[in-house]
Structures are given as structure tokens and as C-alpha cells.
Amino acid sequence: MATKQAKRTAQVPAQRGGTGTTARRLLERAGTTYAAEAGITLADKPSPLYRLLTMSVLLSTRIKAGIALSATRELKGFGTPRRMREATWQQRVDALVRGHYRRYDESTATALGQGADLMHQRYGDDLRKLRAEADGDPRAVRRLLQEFPRLGPVGADIFCREAQGVWPELRPYFDRKALQSAERIGLPTDPDGLAKLVRAADLDRFAAALIRVDLEPDLLS
């Protein structure tokens, strides 16, 4: 019997009908963004963007995605930088534990508090100011995001994959993990080639679907 690791890395053949059919099938079966699963109705507004940032921090650690998303939902009550700052460290820890985000709960609670302080000092509690500072350059967005505590390259990629739904200048955003997944299922391996397979409005869902099928190859079987 194949191991789970072997299942993840095995080549999955493209579905009949070509790459367009595979892309549509992928959207139908796995095209839910991680923000949507976490209960975030993403919009170019301060609170949902901040919640997306929080989710990206939680997903950055080596922990199951389902647990990180559960913890994101538990932190909904601290869905603005001000509320996160006003919460005590223990309240943040308790919310993370309710979401089963153990092992990293204490250090993450500290990082979230520090990140909320940075949000206030640097961006006046509004991530749209980070967007303005980046001036339409996705690389600058990615670099500025990594100034937040516990948000490294992986977390920045997560944020940009999801935020391309409301920040069009990020499109098409497919990070290395998404591109590797595309190669395994017989899709183009460059962002522009992948972008041609779906509507611009579906690029965030498509990127999320590529990540999901990498974790669960049976989604296309």
C-alpha cells in the first residue's frame, strides 16, 4: 500500500478533455478558498484583510490546515488590530486552544499581539496602506508582509494567493507549491499559462484548489 507521502507526490494524469476540463473539474471539487473556509468574507476592507493576515500567520506553522482554520474562526472576536491589541495575551491563547492550536499557542499569541502593534504603528490599522506602499508591485507586497512577526515566505504566499481575489495587481499569483501541484496533474507550469484556464475572478479559488489537490490527490479521481 502506498504511503501518504507517496500519494501526495504521485503524478496525477490530466482528465479527458484537456487542461481546460481539468481546471474546471478542479474548481468544482476543490475551489474553496481557505479564507472562505475560515469564515472570512474577503473584501478590500480593513477587517477582512486583517483576518486574512491572521489566518496566514496561523497557517505558516507546521500544523494541519484544518486546525489553523479552526483557530482563525475562534479569533473572529479579535478581527481588527485594535481588538487584537486590547485582548490580553491569555485571551488570545485561550482562543487558539479552543481552535486546538496547541504547541504553538503561546508564541503565536505573542506574535499576534506584536503584529497588531505593528499594524497600528506602520499602517494605521489598515492593510490597504501596505498595498498603497507596494505601489502595484507583488514582490513589494510579499516583502512588506514578511515584516509581520511569524509571517515568513510561506505565509506571504498564502496571503497573496487569497488576496488576489480583491487586489487584482497580484494576479495571477501561483506560488511554487501551486505550480508544483499543477505540474503533477498535467497543467501548465507557469502563472500566465494557468491563468488562461479560468476566469480572472476565479484565480484565487483556482490557486487554493491546486494546493488542496496537492494534499488530497483523490480529489481528481
Rank of each mutant, 00 (worst) to 15 (best):
V166A: 00
D190Y: 08
E216I: 13
W89R: 15
L52N: 08
R184M: 03
R73E: 11
L118D: 00
T22N: 04
S221W: 15
Y104E: 10
L197G: 03
A23W: 09
A14K: 09
G152A: 12
A109K: 04
P168Y: 07
L59F: 07
L219I: 15
Q114K: 14
A116T: 01
G115L: 05
R212V: 07
L27Y: 09
A195E: 03
S56H: 08
L203E: 14
Q180F: 11
D135H: 11
E86Y: 01
T9F: 08
P168N: 03
V93A: 14
L58N: 08
V154G: 01
L27E: 01
S221I: 05
G165V: 04
E147Q: 12
T19A: 15
L145R: 13
R16P: 15
V198I: 08
D175Y: 05
G193E: 03
E86C: 04
R25L: 13
Q121W: 10
G17A: 00
R16L: 11
A68K: 09
L27G: 01
A2I: 05
T19E: 14
P13S: 00
R16M: 06
P153W: 07
F148T: 04
E37N: 09
A195N: 02
P13Y: 06
R176I: 03
I185H: 06
V57E: 02
I40Q: 06
V57Y: 03
R51V: 07
L112A: 03
S107K: 14
D105N: 12
K129F: 06
V12D: 04
A6L: 15
L58R: 09
G136Q: 10
P191I: 15
V154S: 05
H100C: 11
Q114V: 03
T3V: 02
P217T: 02
D214F: 15
K4I: 12
T88Y: 15
L151D: 08
L197A: 01
K129Y: 04
P13D: 01
L69H: 06
G79V: 12
Y50T: 01
A134M: 02
V141G: 10
H100S: 14
L179N: 13
L118V: 00
R73T: 10
R62L: 09
P13E: 02
E37K: 14
R176F: 06
P188C: 15
P191F: 15
R143F: 10
I63W: 04
E216V: 13
F206M: 05
D135T: 08
D125S: 00
P13I: 01
P191A: 12
D105R: 12
L170F: 13
T110N: 05
A10D: 01
D157C: 06
D94V: 06
G39R: 07
P13K: 01
E37T: 13
E133F: 07
L127E: 05
A95T: 06
D44A: 14
E28G: 13
S60G: 13
A195T: 03
G79M: 11
G124I: 03
R199N: 10
Q90Y: 11
D175V: 12
A208G: 03
E106R: 11
L215M: 13
I158R: 06
R83D: 13
